[in-house]
Design a binder for these strands. Structure first.
Lengths: 169, 169
DNA sequence: CGTGGCTTGAAACCCGTTCTCAACTCCGGT
DNA sequence: ACCGGAGTTGAGAACGGGTTTCAAGCCACG
């Protein structure tokens, strides 16, 4: 880690967020701006708890009801995506200009690697078609153990995988 | 519905269940047998509530704590699979002799269609490999609208999709 | 700057799931 | 058959993420 993180197109997302609010006659409150920027300027898959922590660190107090309500708003606005990695709660990530992507999730350390596959995109449509479904969206999550964790556990062989995948980031 | 449902290999699963209990020195209680058979003889993706209902209909009373504990047991025994379709609760299905399969989920009526794809099986391994992951398991769920529901809503166009997918069966 | 409608926050609530603990059951040994 | 003790059960309490409630507050348009 030598250079500051690239930050995707957070600024553009903020702009789109403000436009959306304006276009829908929704008040642009401080809370909403704080939550949106916390999300847009992060490259992680954030849980609501993570967001509350970021806001707390920035000395901004926002009630959790507001955080949840704003998540809802941002999802509807198409600015963030909601993910469920089976941890018992949701995670959110900014929807960048990038295409839809899938997730590779490390069961040991929780690292999430994103990838895309043109072939999968084509296949999902094909399969939906085959069964008469009008395709809406899909989710492909591959769970496994990343290189680092394989190496690390070489000494302590056969470390039991966390069944629930807790600790995912 | 003219013929009785095919019932997969429920009998065999029951046998495997009993062996597992024996081999692990775990008492084979009436409750556990009732829960296991409720699951094994069903072809649906059952929620805990569904299971409680089946048991109730059969005039077998089992506390919900026991149902949850037995689900855990059966998952660990590798006899059932756990699924999360994003409804806010888990569903379970017997792990038959069949291969791993994916799900097509109707957002309107909740119908779940299973399918397999050799190509996807190959691809998931390839992709995990590419990223240095040791593949453990994966999940591919495609959400859309089935033929029947497309037809049904032809009169009431653009009916909003249920965001949460509630009502999945 | 006033006013009306939308938003906010604290706390109550909801609901799926897990925990607690006293009573009970299974089952191998006798 | 019976005993004993480990393991299981069930009712209810507890837990935790998420949603609702409602009085108070803020935003933005005029």
């Amino acid at each position: 880690m030598t250079s500051p993180p690239p930050k995707l197109d957070a600024g553009e997302l903020m702009e789109r967020f403000r436009s959306y609010m304006r276009d829908h006659n929704l008040p642009l409150t401080h809370q909403r701006e704080a939550i949106a920027s916390a999300l847009f300027y992060s490259e992680e898959h954030l849980s609501v708890e993570d967001i509350e922590a970021i806001l707390r660190d920035n000395h901004v107090h926002v009630g959790k009801a507001t955080v949840y309500r704003t998540m809802d708003l941002l999802v509807r606005a198409g600015l963030i995506d909601e993910h469920d990695f089976g941890e018992g709660f949701k995670r959110f990530e900014p929807r960048s200009a990038r295409n839809h992507h899938e997730h590779l999730i490390c069961l040991a350390c929780g690292k999430v690697v994103e990838f895309t596959s043109e072939r999968i995109e084509r296949m999902k449509a094909l399969i939906a078609d085959e069964h008469g479904f009008r395709h809406h969206h899909h989710r492909l999550d591959i769970y496994g153990v990343c290189t680092e964790c394989q190496d690390r556990s070489a000494g302590t062989p056969d470390r039991k995988l966390d069944r629930s995948g807790r600790g995912i980031r």
